[in-house]
Design a protein around this nucleic acid. Structure first.
Length: 426
DNA sequence: TCTGGGGTCCTAGGACCC
DNA sequence: TCTGGGGTCCTAGGACCC
C-alpha cells in the first residue's frame, strides 16, 4: 500500500502574470513588478529573468538593462493580486476541498486516495481549468511529501517536457536518489543562506549528501526543523499543515523614500501602521495583548552609522482599537528614539492574539462601553471597505506631515475590484 | 562566596519562507 | 539620489517557583 500523495500548485511569476492578464501588450515582453516606493524588483516575467534581473534587485542598479531592453515596469498593485489569488484558490476548491493555502500564489492539495497516474491526470485538468478561468499560468509538483512536491514543482516550471505537471515518486528509490544527487543543497525548501554556508563548509553540497548524514548529526547541528526537512527528503511526510484562518502576529511596516529625522513624524507613521494592523486584527475578529514597534535607519550604512531598535508593550485587556495602543506606543517610542539618525523604516507588530468574543475584560472595562466601541469600529470598517481604505481615519492618528512615501509611478488599474477601473471592451 | 537540582513560562532573536 | 513587506517556528536564556 502506497502512502498518500500531495501536490503543490504554484502560480508562475504571479504578480507579473496578474498584470499580463489585463494588459495583453505585456505578453511575451520582459515585465517587472516593483516594491513600495518603486524601489526593488519583486516579480519578473520569464523574459525579465532571462535578462539577468535578480529577485529583490534595486531598480536603480538595473536602469541600463531596463532601458536597453525596454523592460516594462509596474508598481505593485496588491488589491489586484489579492483578488486574482482568490480566484485561483476558488478554482482549486472546485477540484478538491482539502487544500492548504500556503501563500498568495501557492497551495498544497491533498491527493489522498489517488494512484500516481490519476493524480497526474487530475492535476493536469486543474492546471488547464485555472488557466482558462483566470488567465494565470501555474505549475504543479506531486510527491509523497511537501518538500519533495516543492522540488517537483520547480522541475515542472523549468522543464517543458513535463507539461507543467511533474510527479516525483519517492517510492522509486533509485530515481529519487539520482534526483537528489543533482540538487544543490541550497535549493531545498527549508535550507536557507546560513545553513547552506554551514553545510558547504562541511562538504555537504547536494541534497543527497545531506540525507545520507545520520539523524543524530542533523538534529544536533540543524535543530528539529532540519531533521524534519531531511525526513521529508527521504519520503517520510512530517510537516503538518497549519490551516489557521487567524494569524498569530500581524505586521504593518514601510520603508520611507526619504529618511525621517524627527520623532513626531516617525510617530505619525507608526500610528498609521497601527491603524492598518488593527484593521487586519478586526478582520480576523481578534484582539491583541502585545504590540511591538520598531524603527531603523538604512541597512546600507556602515555599522557605526546604523541604528535600529524595538520596544514591546502589553495591554492587559487586549484590544483591536488603535486609540488603546496610542499612549503606551508613544512612551515606547520615547524609550528607543535617538536623535541624529535618519530613519528609513518603521513598523508595528501585533501579537498575543485571542478571539474577540469571550475575551477577558479588565477591571476598567465595562461591557456596555466595550460593545459601543466595537460597533463604532465595525461601521468604520464597513465604510472603508465600501469606499476604499482611508476614507475614514482616526483624528488622533493623523499627523501634520504627509508621510515620505514616494507615489508609485507605474500603477495598473484595479481591474477586478474597482468599478471605475474595470477593463472596457470596445 | 559557596552551596542544589529541577521544573515552567515568557521573550528576544535567529532562521527560514514567499 | 534611488535598496520590500508579511509571516511562522525554534532555541536559548532569564525570571520565577519549589
Amino acid at each position: 500500500m502506497s502512502s498518500s500523495l500531495i501536490a503543490l500548485l504554484d502560480c508562475n511569476n504571479f504578480y507579473a502574470s496578474c498584470e499580463r492578464v489585463f494588459d495583453p501588450a505585456l505578453r511575451n515582453k520582459p515585465v517587472i513588478v516593483l516594491s513600495n516606493n518603486d524601489g526593488c524588483v519583486i516579480a519578473r516575467s520569464n523574459e525579465a529573468k532571462k535578462l539577468g534581473i535578480p529577485m529583490g534587485a534595486p531598480v536603480f542598479q538595473y536602469r541600463d538593462v531596463i532601458h536597453a531592453h525596454k523592460v516594462i515596469m509596474r508598481s505593485s498593485n496588491f488589491t489586484l493580486y489579492g483578488d486574482m489569488s482568490n480566484r485561483v484558490m476558488k478554482t482549486i476548491y472546485v477540484f478538491c476541498d482539502n487544500i492548504e493555502i500556503y501563500s498568495i500564489d501557492e497551495a498544497f492539495i491533498s491527493l489522498e486516495g489517488y494512484d500516481t497516474a490519476t493524480a497526474v491526470e487530475r492535476m493536469k485538468a486543474l492546471k488547464k481549468t485555472i488557466e482558462q478561468w483566470t488567465g494565470i499560468p501555474v505549475s504543479v509538483g506531486i510527491s509523497q511529501t511537501k518538500t519533495l512536491a516543492k522540488i517537483a514543482s520547480h522541475k515542472a516550471k523549468k522543464d517543458p517536457d513535463t507539461g507543467g505537471v511533474c510527479l516525483l515518486d519517492a517510492e522509486d528509490k533509485e530515481k529519487l536518489k539520482s534526483l537528489l544527487a543533482e540538487l544543490p543543497v541550497k535549493e531545498v525548501w527549508g535550507i536557507g543562506y546560513r545553513t547552506t554556508r554551514f553545510l558547504e563548509n562541511r562538504y555537504i553540497r547536494t541534497a543527497l549528501d545531506l540525507v545520507e548524514k545520520p539523524d543524530e548529526w542533523i538534529r544536533k547541528n540543524m535543530t528539529i526543523a532540519g531533521l524534519k526537512t531531511v525526513w521529508e527528503l527521504r519520503g517520510k511526510a512530517c510537516l503538518s499543515s497549519h490551516n489557521e484562518d487567524t494569524h498569530k502576529s500581524i505586521l504593518c511596516s514601510r520603508s520611507f523614500s526619504k529618511a525621517i529625522m524627527n520623532k513626531a513624524e516617525l510617530f505619525s507613521a507608526l500610528a498609521q501602521y497601527l491603524a492598518r494592523a488593527c484593521e487586519k486584527l478586526r478582520d480576523q475578529h481578534s484582539v491583541a495583548h502585545t504590540a511591538t514597534i520598531f524603527i531603523a535607519s538604512s541597512r546600507f550604512l556602515d555599522a557605526q552609522e546604523r541604528y535600529s531598535n524595538s520596544y514591546t508593550i502589553s495591554l492587559s485587556g487586549g484590544s483591536n482599537a488603535p486609540p488603546d495602543f496610542l499612549l503606551p506606543m508613544r512612551e515606547a517610542l520615547d524609550q528607543i528614539y535617538k536623535s541624529g539618525y535618519g530613519y528609513k523604516r518603521a513598523g508595528v507588530v501585533l501579537s498575543g492574539m485571542v478571539p474577540e468574543k469571550g475575551r477577558q475584560m479588565s477591571l476598567v472595562d465595562n461591557a456596555v462601553a466595550l460593545e459601543k466601541k466595537r460597533e463604532v469600529l465595525a461601521s468604520y470598517d464597513r465604510i472603508n471597505r465600501k469606499f476604499g481604505r482611508g476614507t475614514l481615519q482616526f483624528a488622533s492618528l493623523l499627523g501634520k506631515n504627509k508621510l515620505t512615501h514616494r507615489d508609485p509611478e507605474y500603477t495598473s488599474p484595479r481591474y477586478t475590484t474597482k468599478l471605475e477601473e474595470v477593463l472596457k471592451v470596445r
